[in-house]
Amino acid sequence: MADFAAGKWTLVDTTGFDEYMKAVGVGMVMRKMAAAIKPTQIVEVEGDRWTIKTLTTLKNTEIAFVLGEEFEEVTGDGRKLKTTVTLEGQKLIQTQVGEVDSILTREWDGDTMIMTLKAKDAVCTRTYKRAV
Rank of each mutant, 00 (worst) to 15 (best):
residue 23 A to H: 05
residue 44 E to N: 15
residue 56 T to R: 11
residue 81 L to V: 03
residue 41 Q to C: 02
residue 114 I to G: 02
residue 97 V to T: 07
residue 28 M to V: 09
residue 103 I to N: 09
residue 91 K to S: 10
residue 30 M to T: 05
residue 54 T to D: 11
residue 101 D to N: 15
residue 100 V to S: 02
residue 82 K to E: 10
residue 74 V to P: 02
residue 112 T to R: 13
residue 42 I to P: 07
residue 28 M to F: 15
residue 50 W to L: 12
residue 8 K to M: 01
residue 60 N to K: 04
residue 104 L to E: 01
residue 128 Y to S: 13
residue 64 A to N: 02
residue 49 R to L: 09
residue 113 M to V: 11
residue 61 T to A: 02
residue 78 G to W: 07
residue 28 M to I: 07
residue 60 N to R: 08
residue 86 T to H: 14
residue 34 A to Y: 00
residue 111 D to G: 08
residue 59 K to Y: 01
residue 80 K to N: 02
residue 119 A to V: 12
residue 42 I to S: 12
residue 87 L to M: 11
residue 12 V to A: 00
residue 118 K to C: 13
residue 40 T to E: 15
residue 8 K to P: 06
residue 115 M to N: 10
residue 54 T to H: 07
residue 121 D to P: 08
residue 23 A to F: 05
residue 84 T to G: 05
residue 28 M to L: 14
residue 86 T to K: 11
residue 126 R to W: 14
residue 51 T to M: 04
residue 122 A to Q: 11
residue 89 G to K: 11
residue 14 T to Q: 15
residue 43 V to I: 08
residue 86 T to C: 09
residue 20 Y to L: 01
residue 40 T to H: 09
residue 60 N to E: 13
residue 59 K to P: 12
residue 18 D to W: 03
residue 60 N to L: 08
residue 129 K to D: 11
residue 45 V to T: 05
residue 81 L to P: 05
residue 72 E to M: 10
residue 65 F to Y: 12
residue 120 K to V: 07
residue 82 K to D: 01
residue 21 M to W: 02
residue 68 G to L: 10
residue 70 E to S: 03
residue 43 V to N: 06
residue 111 D to S: 12
residue 122 A to F: 15
residue 97 V to P: 00
residue 94 Q to A: 08
residue 99 E to L: 03
residue 93 I to Q: 14
residue 9 W to T: 08
residue 57 T to M: 12
residue 54 T to P: 04
residue 45 V to F: 11
residue 83 T to V: 05
residue 7 G to S: 05
residue 71 F to I: 15
residue 1 M to N: 14
residue 122 A to N: 09
residue 79 R to I: 02
residue 131 A to G: 10
residue 11 L to Y: 08
residue 91 K to H: 06
residue 98 G to S: 14
residue 26 V to W: 00
residue 109 D to R: 10
residue 113 M to P: 04
residue 82 K to G: 00
residue 122 A to R: 09
residue 124 C to E: 09
residue 23 A to Q: 09
residue 34 A to D: 04
residue 90 Q to A: 15
residue 2 A to V: 11
residue 99 E to Y: 03
residue 9 W to S: 12
residue 50 W to D: 08
residue 95 T to L: 15
residue 32 K to I: 11
residue 76 G to K: 01
residue 1 M to F: 04
residue 115 M to H: 05
residue 112 T to S: 12
residue 111 D to E: 06
residue 49 R to S: 13
residue 99 E to C: 05
residue 87 L to P: 09
residue 88 E to K: 08
